[in-house]
Design a protein around this nucleic acid. Structure first.
Lengths: 342, 342
DNA sequence: TTGAAAGCGTTACCAA
DNA sequence: TTGGTAACGCTTTCAA
């Protein structure tokens, strides 16, 4: 049998409303009363009933998190996002309610309609995303991790994929490569229209032009090692000159490709260059460790949560930008040929 | 502005309690009334207020999920668990509230004390786990994924690690190996006292004895490729006879070890045998694809949820066993030497 | 500085 | 088959 604030009030010899005011701090309380109430709480190991609190106070202290489950593919590297969001929520005394993306707009309507949460973080945004207009019309604030074509007034936070593309192209240009091939996304990823696919590819094209490098995009690319083998052969056929740089924006595709190249006695970092777009951990644990541009999930999540808590309490700080892009980081490892010393 | 059941009642021309009974179905309602209420709901896009419902009905329709975040290591292969649990919860019209393991017992007390959920699933159980007695004393049912030394009356569901060990040893014995080495866990995993570490190792020892195979356990094993290189050297020194079988129960260690062996021109499946304990997906995507015993996260999660919903509504089915072990599956790939044909 | 009491939006009991 | 109403355990207004 759990205790209520009424029990606490009785033990402390005060009114129930006083107990409430001690908890919320919304009214000055004499030190003597405060002590007695806190002691009573301690003694009873009192915990406030969250539903009662939410009903009366119109605040659930819950953040809804829409994660890309059940949508097929690309759950790679998802955990750091969830982990960071969960810990940030806890730091603000909020809980995290998980909703899977396969519920689509219905999940959003349920979260808001049933007053299950105070705010929502939505991941895995598509370039054209049905859920975005729905989210924008919701009675609770929504922050997107990802940038759709039309954010409909919602706050967005994401990696700066345009900058990521530029950094990768620049790295290859600076090290005197004379040709770039992008090993693109899978047909299913393209069909899902993930927002960053386009953002990355468009920026690669632009920057390759700026740096005067010929560019080919191999697309779609299927998964698995047979597909990787085919791509490897294609790359080697493509390699007219000696300095070909390969960009692989799809985490899953990198390791199979490196394996396929090695099997053909083509050593990445000596005979060919490869830069992946992937979590640092993948790049470090692979063999060979590959040069990568990181997706910075922790930074992105942290900023998204800051934006969200600002929306919940705008007085607290200065308004975050509507679209906030986190700078990627390129880490040089072993798979890019150094510039020839001539 | 959201509508309430009172609004629905007004539109339908019935009392508010009738609206409630239409939703819960706990009282016979004439078809005519039912239709009018449902129409009114539709018209207003009414959604019941979850906190009000939870307060009055003493049911939150929320499942608390304690996941191993923030505890360092071993979040490998976690997603299939979460994904299966989330989808099973939805199928029963329940939400999932995420709590991270780094909160320890405090998280459990909060979940139950604040009436945040109706039941709890706890993952990542240690052999001696402080949280287990706390969980057992809670006012809400708790199901463990994992089997602690003392389950304190709680229901447990997990892979049958004893059977997994037996299967792996039998596979090596049946293919005429004459020596087994287990590449054990990291010092940190051992210190955390994960429940299945002991369950697996004890069973390997027993079964090796049954099959009359000499057994060595290398432990602790650190992460990364230098550590893997050291282990590889140790294995090759160990290999007195021609038929050495290696068991690697730690997912993270398998690929680095395979790489290290290959670098030493020792081909797994020809010169040495390796069986991993890991998700199937890892075993398939690695190069070479290795023979593994699967952890069956989906089966384990599904059964855990069935047990949990039985605890919430015992009338519905027959009581699940207190400790439910899911049979592992061994998939032969390329890393076990076939028995010599003599 | 404190208390009493009116909600918050449901569920479920008691009557009709 | 239905309606009225008392909880559920808080927050917050109004009074003192």
């Amino acid at each position: 049998m759990a205790f209520t604030s009424k029990d606490v009030a009785r033990v402390a010899g005060v009114s129930q409303s006083t107990v409430s005011y001690v908890m919320t701090g919304k009214r000055p309380i004499s030190e003597r009363t405060r002590r007695r109430v806190l002691d009573a709480m301690e003694q009873l190991t009192y915990e406030p009933h969250s539903s009662a609190r939410a009903l009366a106070g119109r605040r659930t202290q819950v953040i809804g998190l829409v994660v890309p489950f059940g949508v097929g593919g690309e759950v790679f590297g998802l955990l750091p996002f969830i982990e960071t969001i969960a810990s940030s929520a806890r730091a603000h005394d909020h809980e995290v309610l998980l909703v899977t993306a396969d519920e689509g707009s219905a999940g959003l309507r349920r979260l808001a309609g049933r007053a299950l949460c105070d705010a929502i973080i939505m991941m895995d945004i598509q370039e054209q995303d049905d859920r975005v207009p729905v989210a924008a019309a919701l009675s609770v604030p929504v922050v997107l991790i990802g940038v759709p074509a039309d954010p409909a007034g919602l706050h967005c936070v994401d990696l700066d994929f345009e900058a990521a593309a530029r950094m990768a192209v620049d790295e290859l240009a600076d090290t005197q490569h004379d040709e770039i091939v992008v090993v693109g996304y899978t047909a299913s990823a393209m069909k899902r229209g993930l927002n960053y696919v386009g953002r990355f590819l468009r920026s690669v094209r632009r920057q390759a032009q700026v740096r005067g490098l010929p560019l080919t995009v191999i697309e779609p690319v299927e998964r698995g090692r047979e597909a990787a083998a085919k791509v490897a052969d294609q790359l080697l056929a493509q390699r007219t000159s000696g300095r070909l740089g390969v960009l692989v924006p799809h985490s899953d595709a990198i390791v199979p490709l490196l394996d396929a190249l090695r099997k053909r006695d083509v050593v990445p970092g000596r005979d060919i260059s490869v830069i992946g777009l992937s979590p640092d951990r993948e790049a470090e644990l692979s063999d060979p460790q590959y040069t990568n541009v990181s997706e910075e999930p922790r930074d992105v999540s942290r900023r998204a949560m800051e934006t969200l808590f600002w929306l919940l309490d705008p007085s607290s700080a200065v308004e975050p930008p509507a679209i906030e892009l986190v700078a990627p980081r390129l880490t040089r490892r072993t798979t890019v040929m150094p510039a020839p010393a001539h």
